[in-house]
Simulated scan of single mutants.
Amino acid sequence: MGTIDIVLRQARKLHLAAKSDSLSSAMPVLRRIHAAGIFPSKTLFALHRERGSIQRKHLLRLLAIEAGYPDWERFRPELAHWSPEALEHFKVADEWTPYLNAWFASEAQASAYAQAHGGRVVRYGPHAVVQASDAAMAEGARS
């Protein structure tokens, strides 16, 4: 699967979550939309109330902004040069939730922790998470 397909799939997942009636599904995505300034004149409360008007293009823009690009139109051509591993942070919510992972406000903080305790650093928006080593994850799965 190509990197563009990976991003399109992630945008679809975020879109479904943002429009969900479940507060625990919708709010994390709506907070990201709000933080990215996709709808600068709307409050988080207004975004939740009007979540049915959120379109896939808004989530694609969100992913572009979180990757450091101003919009999807400039992000999409760059994805052809990215490896799928560069998008590994999408797996954080999908695959890593059963495990205890350390979260940090910055990639530098996460790197310092990983150096001292092991694990792998993955940037997640402006934050970073340290995925426990495979051995630690396997031990956690057995308990």
Score class of each variant (00 low, 15 high):
99 Y>W: 13
3 T>D: 00
96 W>G: 05
32 R>W: 09
43 T>M: 07
76 R>D: 03
16 L>P: 04
64 A>Y: 02
61 R>Q: 13
68 G>W: 06
50 E>P: 05
133 S>I: 01
66 E>T: 08
63 L>V: 04
114 A>H: 09
134 D>Y: 10
105 A>V: 11
139 E>L: 15
37 G>C: 00
41 S>M: 13
40 P>Y: 03
8 L>D: 10
1 M>Y: 10
62 L>A: 07
122 V>W: 00
23 L>P: 06
136 A>T: 08
28 P>K: 06
64 A>E: 02
74 R>H: 13
27 M>S: 12
67 A>R: 08
128 A>V: 09
142 R>V: 12
97 T>E: 11
40 P>C: 01
53 S>A: 12
94 D>Y: 04
125 G>W: 01
141 A>F: 15
76 R>E: 14
104 F>E: 01
115 Q>E: 12
122 V>P: 06
88 E>S: 11
30 L>Y: 02
36 A>N: 04
116 A>G: 08
102 A>T: 14
125 G>S: 02
101 N>Y: 06
59 L>A: 01
105 A>C: 07
106 S>P: 03
10 Q>W: 05
90 F>L: 06
17 A>C: 00
69 Y>D: 02
4 I>K: 15
94 D>H: 09
82 W>E: 10
126 P>G: 02
136 A>D: 15
53 S>T: 14
142 R>C: 11
140 G>I: 10
87 L>T: 08
77 P>M: 10
7 V>R: 05
7 V>W: 03
6 I>Y: 08
88 E>L: 10
137 M>I: 11
66 E>R: 03
4 I>G: 07
27 M>W: 14
50 E>L: 14
72 W>E: 11
141 A>V: 12
22 S>Q: 13
89 H>M: 13
116 A>P: 05
110 A>L: 07
87 L>P: 07
37 G>K: 08
130 V>E: 01
37 G>L: 05
111 S>G: 11
136 A>C: 06
15 H>D: 06
55 Q>V: 14
130 V>D: 00
122 V>H: 02
85 E>N: 11
34 H>R: 14
60 L>G: 03
132 A>F: 01
19 K>F: 00
115 Q>Y: 08
49 R>S: 06
20 S>Q: 03
35 A>L: 04
13 K>C: 10
43 T>W: 00
68 G>Q: 00
63 L>A: 07
27 M>G: 01
100 L>T: 13
21 D>L: 11
100 L>N: 10
143 S>H: 15
83 S>D: 12
69 Y>A: 09
129 V>I: 03
44 L>F: 03
118 G>K: 05
109 Q>A: 15
75 F>A: 09
99 Y>F: 14
87 L>R: 06
81 H>C: 09
100 L>H: 13
47 L>T: 04
19 K>D: 01
31 R>N: 07
78 E>Q: 15
79 L>S: 05
33 I>D: 05
42 K>M: 15
54 I>N: 04
71 D>H: 12
64 A>W: 02
20 S>P: 00
113 Y>R: 10
20 S>Y: 07
123 R>W: 03
36 A>W: 00
66 E>H: 02
41 S>G: 11
112 A>L: 15
127 H>L: 08
108 A>S: 07
63 L>R: 02
120 R>E: 12
68 G>F: 08
20 S>A: 15
62 L>P: 01
25 S>M: 15
111 S>E: 14
97 T>R: 10
36 A>D: 07
88 E>H: 09
80 A>W: 05
112 A>V: 07
126 P>Y: 00
58 H>D: 11
